[in-house]
Design a binder for these strands. Structure first.
Lengths: 350, 350
DNA sequence: CTGAAAGCGCTAACAC
DNA sequence: GTGTTAGCGCTTTCAG
């Protein structure tokens, strides 16, 4: 017959120390109103039996779980996993646990079960760290979403009355294209990401706008659509070369696709940057070691994540501080930076 | 004065439906002993008020949380994040939540706080998805670890009485080197990962053993140490060229370092594979688009993760099935596969 | 089939 | 300083 041991409870500690459970509670919560002697005695027992207060029971009564629900998607991409990493460490530092949920697809529309699960777990806040794709944000202003739980979104179009933290993709794209213009390139093509992604649209728009502003062409034959993969970059480049033979440089929607471009360029004996200059987006670790090293736009997903966590915790705290002033929803936009490497340096065509 | 709204409780549902809380409980747990009429009436109220049973209260009483603690590290690496992705989806499918904790460094030795936090949260099991580095497994057989919680480890040296799920790095390495031998290469160097990593040691060992078995040299001057980064691969390659000039091929400990090798090779006008053949390890998505495409060893981290989750859930269930037979600790080892691309195809040196 | 009572592990609000 | 009483939201006896 197996003896039921289980973990020590506050009651056991109390009786072992000869005090009431209330006193033990005071000790573990570091309340001042316990005498030194009692405190030490209780603390000793606690260490001795390895007592850990039940977070469950505590959350149940205190109505706070110190837990954040975090929704991600595409953890096999560099961006999302880096973001998650930032969220996890920021939450940890703030004393919050992370209840993770990964969406099986980017454009999951039925988010009710997820929210409900989080409600059921009494999370104090939710971070929606999924990029905006297709209709996957349709629900944000739904009546269904009249949740009492603070919610912060990552990487979506800024919107009134919502807490959103995002990288400025449009600005990044402008920086990339402006750099090519400065370097003297005049026939600047674009390989975009899938246009149901908000980020892909922003990046394409930046390209169009900068070219328009300096009086260069950005028409239909000057760009092609990819799907973020290296393969689509390779295919896209071949197509672009056909429809835009004067092409002297490309702003590519992400680094993976740029890698595909590099491969085709090698096959066709096109030199980078002498024949075709290249700028990517994302600054994945490998991009510094492409042949040639890739000029790209660096996004600091880590800071982004930290800001999101700080934002949501601020909101949570404000609810509990009884400060009648509800924390207003904030839109925070982080600027990316340009990293210049060899793939875009101006070289005279021999 | 702020009205306390809060979420609906079982009590409210009960009184709204004119039944006792027990009956509501029976309905949400889909117990058979409720009449059709009552069931429907209760269910309607539930949907109407949007009632969700509290997972906290349930776990507290049922002593099961249907939650898995998952420990990772280095989510900015491809491997760990892919593994986490697999764990998240497998857990989801099995109806378990994931409480995530990311270690700030690989060789965290003081794991007590982590375990204690998980105990406090009543997790049903823990998946330790951190690679074995340095002394970071010292605690596994500690008395401190006399936790009642099932624990499954990923990616560490198989060990009796522990549940371990891992890729066979040694085998993968053997496959890589054997492939080079088959292709006719005879001066096969190695760039290893940091040797405090178990995986790096395994990969190096496979290289040594295969070479020894076929009567080729694998001495001190035939390998150098890297740290997984592309930069270290580049540096390592330069050093290796000096100390091992006859070098005709390299088995590199991971794909990132192989990328560094490729960069240096281009600078030195060494052709791959004509002058130097290359095999990597990991099969990161980019490796198919390196110049040239990289032959490498593919590890299926996703299946690995799935197996770990299945393993731990089996153990958890076995505890609750009162089946006096404790589930024995299992060591599962998954074979990787060789992916042949251009970087290792035998070409006659012109 | 349904309800009443007890209690999971803990803390808030009061007594003493 | 410390103990008592009540109860967080739910489920498990055990009556009816």
């Amino acid at each position: 017959m197996r003896q039921k041991v289980g973990r020590p409870t506050i009651k056991e500690v109390a009786s072992a120390a000869g005090v009431s459970t209330q006193t033990v509670s005071r000790v573990i919560n570091e309340r001042p109103d316990v005498s030194q002697g009692t405190r030490k005695r209780v603390q000793d027992i606690i260490n001795q039996v390895g007592y850990r207060p039940s977070a469950l029971a505590r959350s149940l009564i205190s109505r706070r779980s110190y837990t954040l629900g975090v929704v991600t998607a595409g953890l096999d991409y560099v961006g999302p996993s880096k973001t998650l990493s930032g969220i996890a460490s920021a939450a940890e530092n703030a004393g919050y646990s992370v209840l993770l949920k990964e969406l099986s697809s980017f454009d999951t529309r039925d988010i009710a079960p997820i929210i409900q699960a989080y409600v059921s777990h009494h999370v104090d806040g939710i971070i929606w760290a999924v990029p905006e794709v297709g209709e996957n944000r349709k629900w944000v202003n739904n009546p269904l979403m009249d949740i009492e739980i603070p919610l912060v979104y990552l990487t979506m179009e800024p919107q009134k009355d919502l807490s959103i933290v995002t990288i400025d993709n449009y600005l990044g794209s402008r920086m990339a294209v402006a750099h090519l213009v400065e370097q003297g390139y005049r026939n600047i093509g674009h390989i975009s990401g899938p246009l149901d992604w908000w980020e892909a649209r922003q990046r394409k728009l930046g390209w169009q706008d900068v070219l328009a502003e300096v009086g260069l062409e950005a028409g239909e034959r000057h760009w092609v659509k990819g799907n973020w993969s290296s393969e689509s970059g390779a295919l896209g480049f071949e197509k672009l070369l056909e429809q835009y033979p004067e092409l002297d440089s490309i702003f590519v929607g992400n680094d993976q696709m740029a890698l595909g471009v590099i491969q085709i360029a090698q096959q066709k004996r096109l030199r980078i940057p002498e024949d075709i200059a290249l700028v990517g987006f994302d600054d994945i670790p490998e991009s510094a070691y492409f042949c040639p090293p890739l000029t790209t736009i660096h996004q600091d997903q880590y800071s982004l994540a930290k800001m999101a966590v700080e934002e949501i915790i601020k909101t949570i705290e404000s609810i509990w501080d009884e400060s009648e002033v509800e924390e207003p929803a904030n839109n925070l936009t982080l600027p990316p930076t340009l990293v210049v490497r060899q793939s875009s340096r101006r070289c005279e065509k021999k």
